[in-house]
Each structure stands twice: as C-alpha cells, then as structure tokens.
Design a binder for these strands. Sequence first.
RNA 1: CGGAGUGUGGCUCAGUCUGGUAGAGCACCGCGUUCGGGACGCGGGGGUCGCAGGUUCGAAUCCUGCCACUCCGACCA
Length: 438
Amino acid sequence: MRLSRYFIPTLREAPSDAQIASHQLMLRAGMIRQEAAGIYAWLPLGLRVLKKIEQIVREEMDRAGAIEVLMPTLQLADLWRESGRYDDYGDEMLRIKDRHERDLLYGPTAEEVITEIFRAHVKSYKELPKNFYNIQWKFRDERRPRFGVMRGREFLMKDAYSFDVDEAAARRSYNRMFVAYLNTFSRLGLKAVPMRADPGPIGGDLSHEFIILADTGESQVFCHRDLVEMPAPGDVDWDGDLQAIVDQRTALYAATEDMHEQARFEAEVPEADRLSARGIEVGHIFYFGEKYSKPMRAVVTGPDGQERPIHGGSYGVGVSRLVGGIIEASHDGAGIIWPDAVAPFGVAVINLRPGDSAVDLACEQAYGALRDAGKDPLLDDTDERPGAKFAAMDLIGAPWQLIIGPKGVAEGKVEIKRRATGERQSLSLEDALQAILT
RNA sequence: CGGAGUGUGGCUCAGUCUGGUAGAGCACCGCGUUCGGGACGCGGGGGUCGCAGGUUCGAAUCCUGCCACUCCGACCA
C-alpha cells in the first residue's frame, strides 16, 4: 500500500475522551473513530488488524474441528422467550420493533439461534459431537461503556457452541476449545492464562476465563507465575484425550478476583511464585449442560432409542476487544508495537526524499520485493519531513521499518529498524530485504 | 443505576466568574526557505460556541429544560 493513496488519519494529540493507552493509541493511529458511546467505526488501519485477528481465530477454530456459520445480528424475541432469557436479560438487551410491531432484538449472544438451527436438523446421537461458531457483531447496551473497544456496546465476538450427547462428551468438547484458545492467543502474541471462573447456576468446574496481564486490566487476578510463560500446546490429536493438557493448565492456582480465595492461594502457591496483577479477559468458555436444550427441546435420539436433551457449552473470544488488548500488552511511549502476526503492515518502507530519483528507485525495488514476498509493506511516499514520518510510523507500529534516504543511497546503504527494540542496522538494500524476509 | 465532570473549527485548549465584533497552538490551503526523529517565515480558509426556550438594546458568557460524552463506583465477551 502506498501511503499517499491510503487513509491513515493520525492525530498528534490524544482526544481527551480517551484515558487508557490502547484507546488513545487507536485514535491517534487513525484506527477507529467513535460514533457514539461504545460504538466505533473501524478505519482502514484498524480494520486490517481486526481482520487479521479474526482470521487467526477462525483458523484455530477450524483446526479444532469447529464449523463456521454466520448467524443474524437481529433475532426474534420469541426465540428468547422460549429459553426464558427475554425477560431475564434486562436493559443490556437492545430491543427493536419491526414495521409489523414484531419484537426483535440485536443479538448479545446466540445460544438461542444456534440451538434453533441445531434442533431443526440434528436428530441422532450419531451426528454428534458438533461445534458451530460464528464471528459476528454483537450488541450489549452496557451501563457504562469505556476503554475504547475494550468495553464497547457493539463488539465483534467469536462465539462457538458445542453439542454433545452427555456430560462426558461435552467435557471433551470443552477441552478442545480450551486447547484451541491457548493456541489462538499464543499466535496472537499474547500470554493468556486460563483462570477459574464463576460457572453460574450449573456449578461444577467447567468454566474458565482466559486472561492477559496488563496494568490497565479491568480485574485483579491471582495465579502461579509459571502459568504465564507456559508454551501453547500447538497442534494436537484433536480426537484424542486432551484432559492431560487441560489438567496441566488447571493444576496450578489461577483465579480472578470473583473466584479468588486468598487462603488457598497462599497454601497452594509458594510466595515467590505468587503473581497478583491486573488482567484483561479475552476469552471465556463454559459448559452449561441442558440449560438451553431442555426448554428449547433440542434433543437427539440416543443408542437406546430414547430422546434426550443435548449437553451444550459455549465459547467466546472478544475479537474487537483483542485489538485493544494486544495494544495494552504491547506499546511504548512512541506508539503501538504490533506482534508480527497481527500487524496491519509487516514493513513500513520510509522514503525520506520523494522526488529524488535514486531514492525513489530503491524504494520501489524494496516495496515490490516485499509485496511479492507477502510482507504487506506500507510505502510512505508522502511529502512529509523525515521527523514526521518517523513519528507516524512508530505510532502505527509496523514491526519493521526500512528507511531509505539520499545519504544512505549514495553509499549503497539503507537502514532497517526493528520497532520492538529500536535496534537499527545500516545494510545494503539486498541484505536489508534478506534480514526482513528471514 | 448512584456520584462527579465536560460540551467553543479535525485535535488540544483559552475566553464564561464580571454579558459588548469568537481566540491561540497543532492540523489544512498557497508561496518561499528547508529536509535522517513531529521545521521556519509570510499570506489564507474553516466555528449556528451541544440543542431548545427565556432574560437583555445586546448572550459562548446569566436563567430554565433537554441531549450528548467522559471519569469513579456497582454489573459484564
């Protein structure tokens, strides 16, 4: 992409509305624009990141055997009356009437819809297990939206729903999602820790929140230090027994403040390993048994010929929240530091002197080579002064900068800079490309 | 939903107390000098001062009502 033909409306100063780093940086980097409280337009740079995160989430869901669908944003109130949640949900549900005075709602989640789809088509235990997911905009009319996209009212969520014949099978489905989440967050460059969460009215131990540590996190969390650095499982035998992996992650103490028991924490974790920090919830999984299948009559016929309600679980990842979460976890005073996997552009090629034919030529060569190599380069071919370009490119946070100016070109050199470390090297163009591409 | 606060050009803010021709910096346009870490000079464009009433010769400023947004708290992907 050529910056001169693109649209990245950066701001020198952060709007006073924004209080936390990720919100300020997203506004300053021209990623989003607030349209109302907790409602944002995604500008090109922000959209690129959102799409990259979405794609990683999608790939990891697919790998774990989940099947993608797309459910509507507008749902029928009658469906929610079946589950009993239409009256329970309260003011967080945005309720709408169509021209026929029929009650609709903007979906805050989709258990009812997916259960309706499932019950219409699945009749036998032989078709189980099934896990459907969708990546769709949700709306929850939060009392107090804040922190930019981290707590918006409208947000993009990946929500998956598993259907199993009994609780033991449902636990296997749960474990698959548990492992898939570890892999997903790892690919996003995050250290996410699964923590015991409130399982709600169903009880049991089958609910975990995935938390990334950041000073601006919304909740206080407590865990064994070793959990933070534990590597992701990677590809596993998804049809095999994943319990050992889950056990390894859940054996050590980890809880959010709601579930925290200080006495247990101190008993189970040696003092040197106790980590107490702020955390951001980026995923939440739980098993809810027959909560929806019973009232909505989502049943399958078992091997014994008897119908039974399926056992369900649901699994959420806050895709748009992750954009903010990643920035919270990875930024410095100059701006955003994107992990390579989600960077909107892999390399910023900075032309320090557009119009200088030798510099232009070197930039075009570099840009073409990087583009052909799939590195998503952004060529800054604008007329700004060098200082302004450096500041803007640091702000938007491409992992690499390739700096090409007249002084260097005269000596056959360009400069590469790694955004994360600030480390710079002066190299020939060929060597510089080599360094970036390997 | 309780408490606090703020609405003045794209952004940051002054002006409001004490009513009298709407300002500054950044950004934008033109010209010139510049050009390796957010340059400088000169000239220029852009604002129904959140909205609606009211008081007044005159309202960004005073009064009333409404709206929006932010922060703290209680609740949540």
